[in-house]
Simulated assay, not measured.
Amino acid sequence: MARPGGDTAAIVAGADGCPGGWICVLLDRSSRSVTPLLCRSSEELLAIHPEPSVLAIDMPIGLPDSGDRDCDRIARTLLGPRRSSVFPAPIRPSLAAVTRRGADAISRAIVGRGVGAQAWALYRRVLSLDRLIGPEEQALCVEVHPELSFFALNGDRPVPDAKRSPGGIATRRALIDAAFGPEAFPLVRRAIAPIEADDDDLLDALAACWTAHRIAEGTAQRIPADPPTDARGLRMEMWF
């Protein structure tokens, strides 16, 4: 499979969901400058300008009809103490539900696992992306998990502290400073109001952007190496 992006593409981007919608960080690979954007919807996210060669998104892309995805299982193994940050991807039949109770019933009937409030909160974003991203769009839009990005930034070691703890914020901030320079995070923080995105959201978007840059450079890793496709032909994979 040809990897997304390309060596000559100047702009890459990483995106993470936040209270205000999506925090998206663009990186100009030539000047190394970052530009933060706040997108209110998935439609706005996929229409950002300038168009990046890679858009790395922290959200499931490619959904199973039943069971767990291989990429989720592998990610949990790699992350060890941070494994709980990898939520099971919704099964596609449950996306048809309009209430958490309905999604819970469908999921329990098919996989014997319910849908908690935290998982249900992600359903609308997952569904909106699923309607916008097909196999053709997956040449641009790739799934990432920020904890895997931080794993790679940290020398292929899980970050020991939870991301919202003081130690977790400090460690991830230091990793982002080393990757982008110490001015990048303050620039993004000044541009995005705290009510719209927390510090950990900004750090996750920057980590996703770093992975997008690695994909464009040809140095990123993908799990699994030969990903299966879902019923819509989407690859079920993660990059880091």
Rank of each mutant, 00 (worst) to 15 (best):
A193W: 10
D199F: 06
Q138V: 01
A197L: 09
S31H: 03
I195K: 15
I106T: 03
D130V: 03
S128C: 10
R124M: 07
R235N: 07
V25G: 02
I223F: 06
I61M: 09
P186G: 01
G167C: 02
G20E: 13
P50G: 02
V12S: 06
Y123R: 07
E143V: 05
G167M: 07
P90T: 01
I11N: 05
I106P: 00
E44F: 02
W239Y: 14
P81S: 12
V115K: 00
E147K: 00
K163V: 05
R82Q: 14
A216Q: 13
A220G: 03
S149D: 04
L27N: 12
A179W: 12
R235H: 07
Y123I: 08
R235G: 03
L203R: 02
C71T: 07
A89S: 14
R69Q: 12
A170S: 11
A231M: 08
P182S: 14
L148T: 11
G181V: 10
R235K: 09
I110S: 12
A231N: 02
E44W: 02
V86C: 11
E196T: 01
R164V: 07
L234Q: 15
P52V: 05
P228L: 14
H213W: 12
R164M: 10
Q118W: 02
F87Q: 04
R40V: 00
G17F: 05
D200I: 04
V126T: 03
A179N: 04
P146S: 04
R113H: 06
P64G: 02
L38F: 04
L132T: 06
A109E: 06
G6N: 10
S94A: 15
D58P: 02
L202F: 01
V111G: 03
V98D: 15
A139Q: 13
T219L: 11
A15I: 03
S165P: 09
M1W: 11
A47H: 10
P93L: 04
L129R: 00
L79M: 06
A121E: 00
M236K: 05
R101L: 11
Q118T: 05
A162N: 11
F240V: 10
I192E: 04
E51R: 13
S66Q: 15
A15P: 12
M59R: 02
L234A: 04
G116E: 10
G114N: 06
